[in-house]
C-alpha cells in the first residue's frame, strides 16, 4: 500500500486520534507525582509492551480488513502531516523580509496591498518584457516556466513540493489550508497573463484550478483576473495597431480601406512578440488595458467542472469534449 519512495510512516501517524486504556493490576504501584498521572514501575512497561504487541500482531494478522483500514488511516495521517509541514514551510518564508526573498518574483515597491497587482506571466520569454514594461510602483511580475502542475490530479504534498506552486504561495502571502488568511493577500489584483494561443488557454485553466483549489476565497472575492493581450496586429506604414477582438479588427480594417491604406494583418501568438512598451500599452497599462475578472456564480457547478475536466477520470473529460466539440472557437492549426 505504501509505495517505495513514499515517506515512512511514523509512530505519531499511527497513534493519531487514538486513545488507549491499559488496565493493569500491580501489587505495589509507584506513582510519579502527587496527581498520579504516571505509573513509576518500570517493569510494567515491558509487560504491557509484550502483551500488547503480541495481541496486536495477532489481531492484525487475523483481521486483514481491519488492518487495511488502520493502515489507510495511518497513510492519510502521514500525508496530512507532510502536507501541513510543507504548507508551514511555504508560508514561513513570507515572514522573512521580502527583499531577501530571492526567486522569480519581481515585486513592486509599494507595500499597500490595495493598489498592488501581480502578473503571473507565461514563460520567461514574456517575463522579461513584462518586467520592463510594468509600472514598478504597483505591478509585480511572476514568470512561470511552461505548464504548472495540475493540482486536481496531484496529491497535496506533491503539489506543495512543486517550485512554481511554492513561489505562487509565497508571493500571495495568504498561506493555504488551515492557515489561509485573506487579509494577508499582498495584491489586490492577481492577473493571469498568458499567450493568446491554446497553450495559453491551458495554462490559464491550470492556474485557475490551483487558485480555486488552494485559494478559493481569493477567487470568490473577485481578486483574480485574466489579462487580455491583443489578438491581432495591423501594420500600415509605421503604425502598429493592436486589437482585441475580431469585430474591432474588422472595423479598423474597414476604416483603413476607406482611406485606401495598404496594411498587413497578423494573428498574435505570444506575448513575446511584443516589446516591453507595446506590452505595457496593450495589456498592462491601467489606463488602456481590458481585464477579464473571473467570478464564481455557482460554487457547486465550479467545483464540478474542475473535478470533471481536471480530475482523474478520463471518461468524463472525453465526454465533455465529445459533447462540446461543435462549440469550439479557437483552434490552433
Amino acid at each position: 500500500m505504501l509505495k517505495d519512495n513514499d515517506d515512512a510512516l511514523t509512530g505519531d501517524d499511527v497513534r493519531e486520534g487514538i486513545t488507549m486504556i491499559i488496565s493493569c493490576k500491580h501489587p505495589d504501584p509507584q506513582f510519579e507525582g502527587q496527581t498520579k498521572t504516571k505509573l513509576g514501575n518500570a517493569e510494567v512497561r515491558k509487560i504491557a509492551d509484550d502483551v500488547f504487541s503480541e495481541g496486536l500482531e495477532r489481531f492484525l494478522m487475523e483481521n486483514p480488513q481491519e488492518a487495511r483500514i488502520i493502515i489507510e488511516k495511518t497513510i492519510s495521517a502521514s500525508r496530512a502531516r507532510l502536507a501541513a509541514k510543507k504548507a508551514r514551510e511555504a508560508t514561513r518564508k513570507k515572514d522573512l523580509d521580502i527583499s531577501n526573498f530571492y526567486g522569480k518574483l519581481t515585486d513592486c515597491s509599494s507595500k499597500d496591498p490595495s493598489e498592488c497587482e501581480i502578473f503571473i506571466v507565461e514563460g520567461d520569454s514574456a517575463g522579461g518584457s513584462a518586467k520592463e514594461g510594468r509600472n514598478s510602483m504597483t505591478q509585480a511580475i511572476l514568470p512561470l516556466r511552461g505548464k504548472i502542475l495540475n493540482v486536481e490530479k496531484a496529491r497535496l504534498d506533491r503539489a506543495l513540493g512543486n517550485d512554481e506552486i511554492k513561489s505562487i504561495i509565497t508571493a500571495f502571502g495568504t498561506g493555504i489550508g488551515d492557515e489561509f488568511n485573506l487579509d494577508k493577500l499582498r495584491y489586490d489584483k492577481i492577473i493571469i497573463m498568458t499567450d493568446a494561443d491554446v497553450d495559453g488557454s491551458h495554462i490559464r485553466v491550470l492556474l485557475l484550478t490551483l487558485f480555486y483549489r488552494f485559494f478559493r476565497p481569493i477567487v470568490e472575492t473577485g481578486h483574480v483576473f485574466a489579462a487580455q493581450p491583443p489578438l491581432f496586429k495591423i501594420t500600415h506604414g509605421k503604425t502598429r495597431k493592436y486589437v482585441l477582438t475580431n469585430a474591432e479588427r474588422d472595423d479598423y480594417i474597414a476604416s483603413l480601406r476607406e482611406k485606401n491604406v495598404k496594411f498587413d494583418i497578423s494573428r498574435m501568438k505570444g506575448l513575446g512578440e511584443m516589446d516591453a512598451e507595446e506590452l505595457n500599452e496593450t495589456t498592462m497599462d491601467i489606463e488602456k488595458r481590458v481585464l477579464k475578472q473571473i467570478t464564481v456564480e455557482d460554487a457547486r457547478l465550479a467545483d464540478q467542472i474542475f473535478s470533471d475536466l481536471m480530475g482523474d477520470e478520463v471518461e468524463l473529460r472525453r465526454k465533455f469534449i465529445e459533447e462540446n466539440a461543435k462549440f469550439v472557437e479557437n483552434l490552433d492549426i
Binding site: 488557454s201 485557475l208 473571473i294 465550479a302 462540446n324
Partner: peptide, 17 residues
C-alpha cells in the same frame, strides 16, 4: 473590466486547448 464566470472561462479555455 469585463466579467467572466469561472465555469465559462474554464469550459471555453479547456475546450480550445
Amino acid at each position: 473590466i469585463v466579467h467572466n464566470n469561472i465555469v465559462d472561462e474554464i469550459r471555453k479555455s479547456f475546450l480550445d486547448y
